[in-house]
Design a protein around this nucleic acid. Sequence first.
DNA 1: ATCTTAAAGTAACACTTGTCGCATTAAGGA
DNA 2: TCCTTAATGCGACAAGTGTTACTTTAAGAT
Lengths: 209, 209
Amino acid sequence: MTPTSSLPLDDPPVPPIRRRPGGRTSRVREQVLDAVRAELGERGYDELTVEAVAARAGVHRATVYRRWRDVGGLLADVFEAASEDGWQPPDTGSLQGDLAALNHESQAALTAHPPIVAALIAASFRSEEAARGVRRLWEDRYARCEVIVGRAVLRGELSPGTDARRLLIAATAPLYHQLVLLRTPPHPDLPDQVARTAVLAASAGAFTG
Amino acid sequence: MTPTSSLPLDDPPVPPIRRRPGGRTSRVREQVLDAVRAELGERGYDELTVEAVAARAGVHRATVYRRWRDVGGLLADVFEAASEDGWQPPDTGSLQGDLAALNHESQAALTAHPPIVAALIAASFRSEEAARGVRRLWEDRYARCEVIVGRAVLRGELSPGTDARRLLIAATAPLYHQLVLLRTPPHPDLPDQVARTAVLAASAGAFTG
DNA sequence: ATCTTAAAGTAACACTTGTCGCATTAAGGA
DNA sequence: TCCTTAATGCGACAAGTGTTACTTTAAGAT
């Protein structure tokens, strides 16, 4: 019944429970997600607790545990709420432009305040809910961005048969590696640099065959 | 007095405490680090706790908290103990060979059992001790590997003026990104593929100027 | 308007994490 | 051998995380 729940596997079919997504349920979610953003913004990921979120949202912590399970589930839901906006990959007219714009967006998301994406990634190492949320994030983003490679092929910038996923990973991985794993400070030139490197590798045949 | 302790900042100078690194202190460390490896191997990172390590090591948990502070401190110390072995970067005779060998080592480390490196990275998102350990890991490894780029320049495979650090990051980031952040299963071809992409980018001038 | 019941609140409970003052053990210098 | 004291053990305590059975509120169908 929580937003992140899924049907249990191998259960015998039972009459479906009638859910009540009306007024109070929806209002509680809004209050809780607002509280998560506020707590994250003011106190950071390390001090984000179910107790603090519940208190600020004005709901009981048992309610939060019941619907979201843990801090990771909260972050996954905040991220999901922020993503329900029909995002489309950049379309600048060139492969390098598209990849650079994508990387600028990723760097902005990773360094945003409150740090929702950064917190979700951090939480994914300790919460199954957050790990599931991050998995959906990557799968969705990489799938949607394959159109960047498709357009480049149509423009003749890439040969048909280019492995889109491998190119996209090469074009984004150094950014994530530096900002998330190495924890180096963001640099305005980093997104362009990483995009340019991937384009040079692609032109040299790195992602074909 | 714990292995990972550092001098507090801005303290007035005081007579140095005389430490006693003899028999019991050293034996306790050995027992505790063995317990960490055993617990990690048998129960995984998610169930690694100070309580479980202390019990298995036969020491009091107050001792573990006093010396290592948290699970992250334990993992950092285990990693440090494993690294005191004079590791040198691969030297295969070619840039691509060196980078591929390096990536094979990294993939082996990330998928090893017990998963010390994977656990340390995961812990780095919740423990300052682990974050410090991971920072040292990256700094040390990237610094030591710059010799790979130096040798390639001497062989004429790369132009002088190549940014070694940027090349090394491009040559390793996609591996870490996929294994750690995307959590895709390791593939035997991945290390070579990522190395080859970086070499093609380098030959195309991605890391000069 | 009434009835059924999903969703939330309550508060007590259980468990885990982490700390601390004092006691004991043993490292190391004289 | 003796003395000082760093390191460890003890066990009590505090705080936080997470759960649960029962009660209350309100969503939604009739």
